[in-house]
Amino acid sequence: MKLVPQSAQPSPDGATPILDIRNVSLHFDEGRAKAVNGVDLRIAEGEFVAIDGPSGSGKSSLLNLIGALDVPTCGEIYFRGQPYSGIADMALFRSRHIGFVFQTFNLIPTLSALENVMIPVLGHSWSAARQRSKAASLLSGMGLADRLHCFPATLSGGERQRVAIARSMINDPGLILADEPTGSLDSVNAQQVLELLIGSREERQITLVMVTHDRSISARADRVIHMHDGRNESLGEGG
């Protein structure tokens, strides 16, 4: 797919942002529930943005919109200048450019760790050998070299989330969306998973948008977005 900049709005420094979210809203129940309500946000290539906010403030909903899992009620999102509304095949778009990490891991129970990692590239033109070796090396990078053929049920929570992180990176995405990735883990495991996620995305210069309630995590982000009643208020630089 060609990503031709259309109404691309260069950021102040002149580069096209990876994400340009313009006045986006997501309403449910014919407008009675406003999960996202006029969010304006620009995220630069390679940036690490943390999103926090009270429960029900629309964090997950915003992430779904960014991940093209849901269609905004109004507003437009641009990915590297390309408006979502102009993308014909959203599934293909996701499989090329986006990686997901979920709070509850969401591994497929009938597939081994290795196979789970391969899911996003199943339809790619890669050879089976390439899919396997890439998945295996990602899992090794997550310290799971000896767990390739284990099924999710036999893995610990931390191990499962590391498989999920490997899975989110197999398609070399420009953007990883993580919704409370450490929310189901104890602090030791949370820390380990976080280091792996942040470490590998730095290495590969992947943009990371992460929903988190953990102040120590948001402190490490380049920027923290605070969501409230479906709106965002930037808290500026993290750290």
Binding site: A91, R94, S95, F102, I119, G123
Partner: peptide, 16 residues
């Protein structure tokens, strides 16, 4: 249902 949602999120087209 949830598993199918995951597959969709991971880029599986409806046809697959």
């Amino acid at each position: 249902t949830r598993e199918i949602g995951v597959l969709q999120a991971l880029g599986w087209p409806r046809s697959r």
